[in-house]
Design a protein around this nucleic acid. Sequence first.
DNA 1: GTACAGATTGAG
DNA 2: TCAATCTGTACT
Length: 184
Amino acid sequence: MEREFFTQPTLKVAQQLLGKTLVRIWRGKRLAGKIVETEAYIGPKDKASHAYLGKKTPRNRAEFMVGGHIYIYLVYGMYWQLNFSTETKGRPTCVLIRALEPLEGINEPTNGPGKLCRALKLNKSFYGEDLCRSSRIWLENGLEIPQEAQIVRSARIGIDYAGPYWSKIPWRFYIKGNNFVSKK
DNA sequence: GTACAGATTGAG
DNA sequence: TCAATCTGTACT
């Protein structure tokens, strides 16, 4: 995928990522999966974002990079969370990849954000990696892009702490009826 | 230096 | 319903 794809508005990128193929080269092998579920986190105003009110720390600085870079971090002491930065440099926006449908070489579950990172052998060494230039992880166009009618919008998962408004805003997207979406 | 909570998961 | 497990961040 080109840089221009990732620099579009975050909500648009979150929806257009559905159906794209995420490719990861691991020990010379191709691991690939179709993205079936995403969530948008939109910078300073989003109370659920790590960059709420523009907060910038060593941990979340990748959120501020120009679209197409990897923001990866550890939650609950054991699960990695894969995000792609979006929009322009300095804008703290990103899309969380929540679930994949396995296509090639994947032998572990990928129906959750922590699980997909385990299946694709992703960790902090990917922090800040450029998806447009990396030789070990990138995105390819899927064969068919889901029609708008096949995309479901709902509230994001696991962010109740953000309060009644931000925890309910419908910034989670997934492919309708897909068996690999998390929280069946 | 110490305390604390989290964009999850799988077991009971 | 609940514990595992650890890092970034805030506070003393």
